[in-house]
């Protein structure tokens, strides 16, 4: 429960163990995600990050423990890894953004039209209004991601969960993507949970980090600086991970 003066609790993991067929792959994780927080989930490939995220979102059942919503009707939105989005569909960028408006059975309402003003303003907010009538599948990776961020924006979510949204981007585009997300957080009070391998961006933008590693049975959460200073982090990454090193050198 939220205490007076604390940001509103949105989602809580209460000793949640995640895995498949009753077998946990990670130790119990207890974290609370609150309004306006920027969480980064970090770990090596295959460390269980996506499994943990999907369990928190209700896409997978927890092996043990429980996932709690801060209030009934919590509005979640999810941007899965790019491979989970089927680009065979001939959709315009505008159509993809409009999907963010649909929730529950609202898709049967014909008047929730393509020209909804919120769709246009979300496209403008992400700087892709001129691409509104372009086929989504023909956009560049950076443009696609902006369109998908516009979908997040239009969804009026309280908590947005993104699984490696910048994996196909160069460093400049990646920085722009984090900046856009941070802007959404500031303007809307949106909480963000993002899986990222770019530790420099995590250090710069996130205010909470969760390190997961199934091989060593690790789950460490806290402020990014605390997590990066943890021995278990150093055991799984190099002494100073390249991305982090570059950022620190640049900052200096």
């Amino acid at each position: 429960m939220s205490r007076v003066g604390e940001p509103k609790l949105l989602l809580a993991s209460r000793s949640v163990e995640v895995g498949y067929l009753g077998q946990a792959i990670l130790p119990p994780v207890s974290v609370e995600i609150r309004e306006g927080e920027f969480w980064a989930i970090i770990g090596r490939n295959g460390s269980g990050k996506t499994t943990w995220l999907k369990t928190m979102l209700g896409l997978l059942p927890p092996v043990r423990g429980r996932v709690e919503h801060g209030h009934a009707g919590l509005r979640l939105s999810y941007l899965p890894q790019r491979k989970a989005i089927d680009e065979l569909y001939p959709l315009l960028a505008r159509d993809v953004v409009r999907m963010g408006l649909d929730r529950g059975w609202s898709f049967v309402r014909p008047w929730l039209g393509r020209e909804h003003p919120e769709v246009t303003s979300a496209l403008e907010e992400m700087g892709v209004n001129d691409l509104a009538d372009e086929p989504f599948r023909r956009l560049s990776e950076g443009q696609k991601q902006r369109v998908l961020f516009a979908r997040l924006s239009v969804s009026r979510a309280e908590l947005a969960v993104l699984d490696e949204p910048t994996s196909a981007m160069d460093q400049v585009a990646e920085h722009e993507a984090f900046t856009l997300l941070d802007g959404l957080r500031e303007r809307r009070g949106l909480a963000i949970v993002i899986v990222s391998h770019y530790l420099g961006m995590v250090r710069r933008f996130a205010d909470r980090a969760l390190l997961l590693d199934r091989d060593t049975g690790t789950a460490v959460s806290g402020a990014p600086a605390e997590v990066f200073a943890d021995d278990r982090f150093h055991a799984r990454f190099s002494e100073r991970p390249p991305a982090l090193k570059t950022l620190e050198d640049g900052d200096a």
Partner: peptide, 17 residues
Amino acid sequence: RGFLFAGFDPEGASVHR
């Protein structure tokens, strides 16, 4: 619209309930 969303991004559609 439901058929499209569920086919294009089934996990995103599930999270949108």
